[in-house]
Amino acid sequence: MRQRVLALLTAMVSALALAVFLPASSASAATCGPGWTASAVYTGGNVASYNGHNWSAKWWTQGETPGTADVWADQGSCDGSSPGGGSGGSCDYPAWVAGRAYVTGDIVKYTDGKFYQAEHDNPGYDPVISTWYWEPYTCGTTPPPQGGFVVSESQFNQMFPSRNSFYSYSGLTAALGAYPGFANTGSDTIKRQEAAAFLANVSHETGGLVHIVEQNTANYPHYCDTSQPYGCPAGQAAYYGRGPIQLSWNFNYKAAGDALGIDLLNNPWLVQNDSAVAWKTALWYWNTQTGPGTMTPHNAMVNSRGFGETIRSINGSIECNGGNPGQVQSRINSYQSFVQILGTTPGSNLSC
């Protein structure tokens, strides 16, 4: 019995010694999960790391920063590098290494101190020489979601802080399927530039996505071209400007409706009552109509003719060639702001 007690006492002393002399850090922190990014969509239970902690989403979220929104539950500190976006668009990207394989979306810091993003998989080509494989990246921005619209909902809200709730992000994304080439043609730079150009023009047309219908009601009866064989069945004053591009005239409602499979000639009010329909009419004009210009705004952007050419296709001689330089500059200002939000450059030929 005495020997058993002595053995027990010896074991207790050894345990106490270990507790005293072992460093507290021996209990290692959890490994950091994928880094949080503002553009990603998270659902309940998804884990992301941010600022040295793992966070678990309680429900669906996008663009809400862990630690500042109730949707995230703190799972405690973590160690190790995060394979994802880190701190949501920080500048902590690895140095480029010649001959190291990179995949599309990788971001590196080059020897000139600038950042580049892989546009295509490559075996370590030089970013400033192989422009097919690399494009400049503005540090501090979030890459677009893979396979998705190049504008995230948080970026959209940043562009339009006072927008009318009618112009919803979900309405816009629901309309994208009607014209899959929009903001989805060419390099990532061109995709971002086209999205910014489109949104800058609709911002100008609607006062920052505030106005759904044309504000000058005196113009309403003027948009009925009675020479058309179908006339104006919804009424002479029914075809006033509506939606993001302010669609107007009976013949435009007829053409847009035919292209989209929606009877807008007889029911033009759909453009002011259905967000997705409104966005579709704007995309219809952008992708298919030259207006007073020589090409569609879509073609102007994907063929590098510049933002100025999109202005010409929308308002032509009313603004271009000295018609109204103030209005042109207003559109340019919005475009320059939006490309900055999207982390790209505006390109050339901004004015018309």
Rank of each mutant, 00 (worst) to 15 (best):
G140N: 10
P136M: 15
Y110K: 10
H120P: 03
C139T: 08
Q117G: 02
P143C: 09
E135R: 02
C139F: 13
D106E: 08
G113Q: 04
I107K: 05
P143S: 08
T111V: 12
G124N: 13
E135Y: 01
D126T: 13
I107W: 11
Y125M: 12
E119C: 03
Y110V: 00
Y133D: 13
E135G: 05
R100F: 09
D106C: 08
D106G: 07
V103C: 02
P123V: 15
I129T: 13
F115M: 07
V128H: 14
D121Y: 05
D126P: 10
Y102N: 02
E119S: 07
C139S: 15
K114N: 14
T142H: 11
P127G: 14
G105P: 13
I129E: 02
T141W: 09
D106M: 06
G99A: 06
T131K: 06
Y110L: 04
R100V: 15
P127A: 07
I107R: 09
G140S: 09
T131V: 00
G140T: 11
G140F: 10
W132D: 09
D112E: 06
E119M: 06
D121M: 01
T138E: 13
Y102P: 03
G113S: 06
T142V: 09
Y133Q: 08
I107A: 04
E135M: 04
P127I: 08
K109W: 08
